[in-house]
């Protein structure tokens, strides 16, 4: 089902939405082209046109730091597994980030299920927003089929000039529409406009890398020993920025923290990165990915090869964040291009 929201009513819609649950949406940050999902209460605070935020919405699904266990060791051991969550709505999620959340959903629903993630995720209402234009040269959403919406949202907004056309995808999306009310009905001219926009996008969102998505797994099958990884080794600073900003990177460390009374404490998980040196180290000091080349390679295989077998999809959503954030100028599209060149030579 589709409905129409006139632009003149957008601010009112956002205010009403923020009264229902805490509302987060893309907002402008200081600095050139910097955006972040922030708490908002009015439409004026929202950047309708934005390029991918610094951190993807995964920060709401897997907080950087999250309590797993609360314990007391005053008399024996007493521990309880807990989840911290907050009902919220996230407005303005682009298709790349919706794809990222779909990837995380798959990982954390795989048995043994992660109830911390699933409980928190079930309290989040997702409202997508279509990219009418290509965000910048770092994106590669078309390569990984993330340019157009394919589920993963409750409502999906497309900006068509004077109005938004809204796809209502779920019952909780429908409840929002019913509660806020006064949407207009959609007619064929609206749908024709939507189709026209998507047709235009199909032309503009061209092939970013000279390979078809279906051939990428084979490319990686041939590239485990490629010299491209050595080249990355020479540039990579092993800072972990690329994995922090990645919408599908979810690796974590688990740590304990005790209160000053030395009786109560928590066990929590915190984002970790396969790019950091100790990540694959075991007791006795052996490191199974000691070289930065092995660690960068691992990152790329975790995006383009390993999840294909496990989940039948890429874990790259083409958002371009890893390239935008890399201090050493390592570019995902450039790496793919180099792998193609090397495999053909």
């Amino acid at each position: 089902m589709y409905v129409i929201l006139g632009k003149e009513r957008f601010n009112d819609f956002i205010s009403r939405l923020s009264e229902m649950r805490r509302l987060f949406a893309p907002a402008v940050l200081k600095g050139y082209n910097n955006f972040a999902f922030e708490k908002v209460t009015s439409g004026k605070e929202i950047a309708i046109k934005y390029i991918p935020t610094i951190l993807p919405p995964k920060k709401f699904f897997i907080p950087q730091r999250e309590t797993l266990l609360e314990f007391n060791i005053a008399q024996g051991i007493d521990a309880e597994a807990v989840v911290e969550y907050e009902p919220m709505t996230i407005f303005g999620v682009h298709t790349c980030d919706l794809a990222g959340i779909q990837c995380l959903n798959m990982v954390f629903s795989e048995r043994p299920k992660d109830y911390n993630y699933l409980t928190r995720g079930s309290k989040i209402v997702l409202i997508g927003l279509e990219c009418n234009e290509y965000c910048d040269e770092y994106a590669s959403c078309n390569l990984v089929n993330a340019t157009f919406p394919c589920g993963g949202y409750d409502l999906f907004f497309t900006d068509l000039g004077d109005y938004f056309v809204i796809h209502v995808n779920t019952r909780s999306g429908d409840e929002i529409i019913k509660e806020i009310g006064s949407f207009e009905k959609v007619d064929t001219s609206h749908i024709n406009e939507l189709e026209k926009l998507r047709e235009k996008k199909r032309k503009v969102f061209g092939n970013e890398v000279p390979i078809e998505g279906k051939h990428i797994p084979e490319l990686f099958d041939r590239s485990f020993g490629a010299s491209v990884w050595k080249d990355l080794e020479e540039r990579c600073l092993a800072c972990g920025n690329c994995t922090n900003v990645c919408p599908t990177c979810y690796c974590f460390d688990i740590r304990d923290e005790v209160e000053l009374n030395l009786e109560s404490g928590i066990r929590y998980r915190v984002w970790y990165s396969c790019q950091l040196e100790p990540f694959a180290k075991v007791a006795g000091g052996i490191n199974f990915r000691k070289e930065r080349s092995a660690r960068q390679k691992h990152r790329y295989y975790r995006k383009f090869r390993y999840p294909v077998d496990r989940f039948t999809r890429f874990f790259c959503t083409g958002c371009g964040r890893c390239t935008r954030t890399c201090m050493a100028g390592i570019s995902l599209k450039e790496t793919l291009n180099d792998l193609i060149k090397e495999s053909e030579s």
Binding site: A81, V83, Y85, N116
Partner: peptide
């Protein structure tokens, strides 16, 4: 922030 005990948590000891 709300909090709830998860009986089925895989982190329960």
């Amino acid at each position: 922030m709300e909090k709830m005990v998860i009986k089925d948590s895989s982190y329960r000891i």
